[in-house]
Computed example of a mutant assay.
Amino acid sequence: MSDPGRIPDVLEHAQRLPRGGIYVLRHFGREDILSDLPELERIVHERQGLFLASWMSGLVSCKHLDGFHFPERHQACAARLRARGDKRFFTVSAHSPGAVRKTLSLHPGAVIVSTAFSSQSPTATRPLGPWRLACLQSKFKVPVYALGGITPVTLKRLNGLGLSGAAGVSSF
């Protein structure tokens, strides 16, 4: 996941995407970043990944994206797209078990649950920890990815818990 406040060069950042991963361009409304969409698409697809952008209504017809990432506050937008028959892949953020439950009717490709571990991110909330994340994965039967405080050490704490994976801004 990108973050224009923490990742100044999204093209270089995307080069580090693990093969088969999902790259989420979080633009926070900065339209200047959108000029990189064609090159980001090329980089991500070379790595056999999926290229998503944070929700922005102006991107609905963008040909460079494989889908969208919906922050928790934009779940209603995801619901409207699904109601119109949009079948594209998308992910949704959730910051609590209740928020994960609300995403199920949206049929997301994955739910990115934050905050997994203690994090210095300005949007970090109280950490859920590995066991609560694992419970979410088993209870809701939707792919759950951990976000927040992901490091080589914390990533090892997620091994064997049944999570679908981990997401990060500066962790890869």
Rank of each mutant, 00 (worst) to 15 (best):
I33N: 01
I33R: 02
I33M: 07
L34N: 00
D36V: 04
D36E: 05
E39L: 04
L40H: 03
L40M: 06
E41C: 12
E41F: 00
E41K: 08
E41P: 01
E41S: 13
I43C: 03
V44L: 00
V44D: 02
V44A: 02
H45Q: 02
Q48N: 10
G49T: 00
L50T: 03
L50W: 12
A53T: 04
S54K: 03
S54G: 14
S54I: 01
W55P: 01
W55R: 02
W55T: 03
M56N: 12
G58R: 03
L59H: 04
V60M: 08
V60W: 08
V60D: 13
S61P: 01
S61L: 13
C62H: 00
H64A: 12
H64L: 05
L65F: 09
D66M: 02
D66A: 03
D66E: 05
G67E: 11
F68S: 06
F70M: 09
E72L: 05
E72G: 08
H74A: 14
Q75D: 10
Q75A: 13
Q75V: 12
Q75I: 13
A76C: 04
A76H: 13
A76W: 10
C77G: 13
C77L: 11
A78H: 08
A78I: 09
A78S: 09
L81C: 10
R82F: 08
A83P: 08
A83W: 07
G85M: 09
G85P: 11
D86M: 11
K87C: 11
F89Q: 09
F89S: 04
F90R: 10
T91I: 08
T91Q: 09
T91C: 14
T91W: 06
V92P: 07
V92N: 07
S93C: 04
A94E: 09
A94F: 12
H95P: 04
H95W: 07
S96R: 09
P97E: 09
P97I: 08
G98P: 09
G98E: 15
G98F: 06
V100T: 04
V100L: 06
V100Q: 05
R101P: 01
R101G: 03
T103W: 02
L104G: 02
L104V: 06
L104H: 01
S105G: 15
H107E: 14
